[in-house]
């Protein structure tokens, strides 16, 4: 037994898992420090869910790219959490804001369940991705409030875009509250199934980097355009043909 293990028998084990092991006991209960650390993590996750994405700052960070703002049919966060169906639709009066055009690609930045994720990573990911796609015609970036992944279907259809990439704040966990996900859909239109999308998730400082996510997204976009498909079809083909397999995750939107 090493001295380190003698001092803290958990030292070796702690390195093997992010789980909260070896917390000690106060009688049967958790020691004060463990209780407060847990509450700090939970409060960060709660604030990410209930915080507001700073879309003014996101729009500024996107410049010189054009952007525009839409709102889902949800009134407020409480309704957002109860009514996923309303978060998937664009508010009627906002549909006319979406300029129809011959777009290869539309980006939608949706606040989803983590405002922090959008504030921190979304604009950078758009820039990095477009940088890797010379010659692509991208629609103005759509900033969508109180929005879920499937809102991109209606936006993409209204814009007339061949592909839509929805950047969305993922449900926060206790260890990560600012994780961004990307959902890619070929020929977006109302009623697309989750199985028709490809997903890149876990984009944050300690997960997938923005650079690496942009590599994967640009690669997927290229593949989707040439194969004219996203979802299960693209995933299977991509995995067998790819010279570098991107980290593809099963799709669970909400």
């Amino acid at each position: 037994m090493t001295d380190e293990v003698a001092a803290d028998p958990y030292a070796r084990l702690r390195a093997a898992t992010p789980a909260r092991i070896g917390l000690g006991r106060s009688g049967d209960g958790l020691p004060t420090r463990a209780v407060l650390e847990f509450q700090a993590a939970h409060s960060r996750a709660r604030d990410a869910v209930h915080g507001r994405a700073d879309f003014d700052a996101v729009a500024a960070a996107l410049a010189p790219l054009d952007s525009l703002r839409v709102h889902s049919r949800v009134e407020d966060r409480a309704q957002y959490l109860r009514r996923p169906d309303l978060g998937r639709r664009v508010r009627e009066s906002d549909r006319s804001l979406l300029p129809r055009g011959d777009w290869d690609l539309a980006f939608v930045i949706a606040d989803g369940l983590s405002a922090e994720a959008v504030n921190r990573h979304a604009a950078a990911l758009v820039h990095e991705t477009l940088h890797r796609l010379p010659g692509w015609r991208a629609a103005p970036v759509v900033l969508a409030e109180q929005a879920r992944v499937a809102l991109g279907d209606e936006v993409g259809e209204a814009l007339g875009a061949r592909l839509v990439a929805v950047l969305v704040g993922e449900r926060p966990g206790l260890s990560v509250a600012d994780s961004l996900g990307v959902y890619l859909t070929w020929e977006p239109r109302l009623g697309r199934a989750d199985s028709e999308r490809n997903c890149i998730s876990n984009i944050h400082a300690n997960g997938l980097s923005v650079q690496r996510a942009a590599d994967t997204l640009a690669w997927l976009l290229d593949e989707a355009r040439s194969r004219r498909v996203t979802g299960v079809g693209l995933k299977l083909e991509a995995l067998s043909a790819a010279s570098y397999p991107p980290p593809l995750h099963p799709v669970h939107t909400e």
Binding site: R20, D28, G29, H42
Partner: peptide, 25 residues
């Protein structure tokens, strides 16, 4: 029950060992 009530794989919160121990006692 999960360590410290925090499931680090599924990303949700359940009970801790301490909670169950406390109930038993």
């Amino acid at each position: 029950a999960v360590p410290g009530a925090d499931d680090v794989m599924l990303g949700y919160q359940s009970l801790s060992w301490h909670d169950v121990l406390g109930l038993r006692h």
